[in-house]
Design a protein around this nucleic acid. Sequence first.
DNA 1: TGGAGATATTTTAAACTTAAAATAATTCGG
DNA 2: CCGAATTATTTTAAGTTTAAAATATCTCCA
Lengths: 188, 188
Amino acid sequence: MEKLVDEDLPETVDAETRVQGSGDHHAELRLWLRMLTCTNLIESEIRSLLRTRFDVTLPRFDLMAQLERAPDGMTLGDLSRRMMVSAGNVTGLVERLVQDGLVERRPAPGDRRSALVSLTDSGRASFETMAAAHADWVADLFSGLDAGDIDVLMGLLAKAKASARLAAEGAPQVSTQATLPKKDTADG
Amino acid sequence: MEKLVDEDLPETVDAETRVQGSGDHHAELRLWLRMLTCTNLIESEIRSLLRTRFDVTLPRFDLMAQLERAPDGMTLGDLSRRMMVSAGNVTGLVERLVQDGLVERRPAPGDRRSALVSLTDSGRASFETMAAAHADWVADLFSGLDAGDIDVLMGLLAKAKASARLAAEGAPQVSTQATLPKKDTADG
DNA sequence: TGGAGATATTTTAAACTTAAAATAATTCGG
DNA sequence: CCGAATTATTTTAAGTTTAAAATATCTCCA
């Protein structure tokens, strides 16, 4: 399947070319497109199921999933970092979930800038039902993979994640973007 | 890293439970979260680079990438299927790209419902510059993976994709959704 | 202690996105 | 040929998303 990759060629390319070269990036590009397709496919399906079965949007489900693990509440900043979305986005999502009675806000003790967000009883009950179905759907979507496949995928995705983080933070293009939130996410 | 997965347990669960069960879907769930994190991380970085370097949004870049492979143009429906986004979304994106002079529309010969969309000369030139940089960025983000890793990942992602498609189409929840667009995507 | 810089959040404007309904044109069986 | 079903696209309304600017508060060191 990978006839384009020649394991023997890398060292024939001089260092200068490889730093920022017009090298052969075919394999990486194809990998990226496939990853994207795979993720989009699954995400679409989950989004559609959440809507038809529970009349809830994916972002709201995701936010509630974060809160479930934090019985004492999380700040909006925590949510923003964990969900990898902008702070402004979280403000709006929380607002709408509060209106629906699924989530509540209270001032954070000791920091008047900050608010703690947590699930209401209703929100928790609602989330638990959805989460069980969600887990079934995900298991179903991945049912073509055996335990070994999953293990190997987990490992390689961890490696890819580490690589991407290093590249993104290590070579911060233009203005070093030191103020961007650290990516501290849900999967470990 | 995978202490939660027990390779020996699957067959101790009876068939009924596994059909729509409250089984142990931990591994699949963790895989899904990691996939999502990995994809989001890379996508964020690319989005940010496209904006700061070329002042272009990711959806516009993606649309132009589809058009580049179709010198004779594509219909909006083709674009919608390839990009895995709704038809209405494509309408708006094309509209804005036409306004920017990067893309052009013309009536499709032989079908008055349909329009063919293609890159303008300016759009093509612009895209080629961006695509080269994009390929470099992607290669950079994945530079921690060797050729073997990429090979294995490609294979497992193909397997995951096939599994997800089968689950999504084979068990179409509620109302069989026969009218949803076939997912015919860019990566093969 | 004063104030510069950092941090937490909200606001704003524009773009993106979806689902569903509405239009319009095509296809095809009878 | 007719009309029902299908297909291609647009429109609509609501929600999501981002980047950037604006507020408000906190930290900390000189």
